[in-house]
Simulated assay, not measured.
Amino acid sequence: MPENAAYLRTLPWFARPGSRAWRCAAAPAAVREFHAALADYAPTPLKELPLLAHELGVGRVFVKDESCRLGLPAFKALGASWAVHRALAERAASGNEKGPVTLVTATDGNHGRAVARTARLLGQHAHVFVPQGVHPKAVAAIVAEGAKATEVAGAYDEAVRLAAQAAAAADAVLVQDTAWPGYEQIPGWIVEGYSTLCAEIDEQLATEGVLEGPDLVTVPVGVGSLAQAVVTHYRSRPSGRAPALLSVEPEGAACVLASLIRGRPVSVTTGETSMAGLNCGTPSSIVWPCLRDGLDAAVAVPDAGSASAAARLAALGVSSGPCGAASLAGVRAALSGVGADGRRSALQLGLSSVVVLLSTEGTAANPHTTAGH
């Protein structure tokens, strides 16, 4: 098979003109203040990779390296810590606080571990539902945080359903990073928590002389919470460039791409993928309007593309698991092969463009093929 045979088929792709003109309200400033006050907080690195810029035909490429965030190997602790803080404060204000509470969630790895770590640090309990296919090392990492882990004979969406049932039955607090009608407040706080990552990028780019912001930001997507935070950040800025925003999903779990193509939220049947933290079949209910109106484009990539991107990042000194490397895989796919000129034009990329790739996890988050949602 020729080396470029994979590009002879139609790329799973969607582009929407005019999204850069859409505007929304910003995340609250209190989020960044909260994280900055945490004992182990520090901004994660923004690494410039000139060789990637040359390979992609753009001016500069920066990778936001989330391989160590608040002591964990992925970005998820930002959302979990803020959401738990808000949820416990609300519970205390309502007079329902009667000793330690149990925080319940479903996860493919990183989100569950972040909730478990937050519970342990705050003297609370955690119960984490884990879907089929998660590597035992990922489950062990959750248990090592002091959490109870319940393994589910089903996919991620089934684990979410069982977690919600268990939380309701036990008067516990469900800390889930996907929303549905009737359960949207806590997922909204999780999205707010991720805004700290975007604020750091602004500050870090400024120190690199990029004062107007990036031209393209690429974000991996599971249920879409991080993507919502990215869209909210860049579509609420009063000044500076309005960058193109590109979402990336596994080909076998591209629920946001399918929803964008059909113009309404849809669920897809998921299979196995090395990008396990992105293996989600239904977009979060609160993210859909934001992604529909604020994303410029969406692409789906195969596992082989993610693996190749992870290897390239490793060679350039960036620890990135399959989910984190999906950002590079998505840009590579968009800017290569049949139709690449049209996709480059849709993203308005030129030889001087500044590209930011969000690498959402390190390899330590990903024993064998399991990453973490």
Rank of each mutant, 00 (worst) to 15 (best):
W82T: 04
V338T: 14
V128N: 07
A74K: 03
P12D: 00
L122R: 15
I201D: 01
S319F: 00
Y41W: 13
V139R: 12
N366S: 15
G372Y: 10
P50K: 00
A164H: 14
T369D: 13
R23Q: 10
G305T: 09
Y7K: 02
S19L: 05
A325F: 00
A80H: 09
V58H: 00
P220V: 05
L174P: 00
T270H: 11
S259K: 02
A116R: 03
H111K: 05
V104R: 03
P243S: 10
P302E: 15
Y41V: 11
Q185E: 11
V115D: 08
V104D: 01
D341V: 13
Y41F: 13
L245T: 09
A114Q: 04
P322N: 11
E97L: 14
T269N: 12
V104E: 00
W180T: 02
A74Y: 02
W22H: 10
A53H: 02
L88Q: 08
A92G: 12
A119V: 06
T118W: 07
R264A: 11
G317P: 08
A311H: 11
A340V: 08
H35V: 04
S319H: 01
V256Y: 00
D157I: 15
S267T: 07
A92H: 03
E192W: 08
M275K: 02
T105F: 05
A93Q: 15
F75L: 06
P45Q: 05
F34Y: 15
G193S: 07
G324V: 02
S19A: 15
L291T: 06
G271D: 07
K148L: 12
A258Y: 01
A80G: 11
I190K: 04
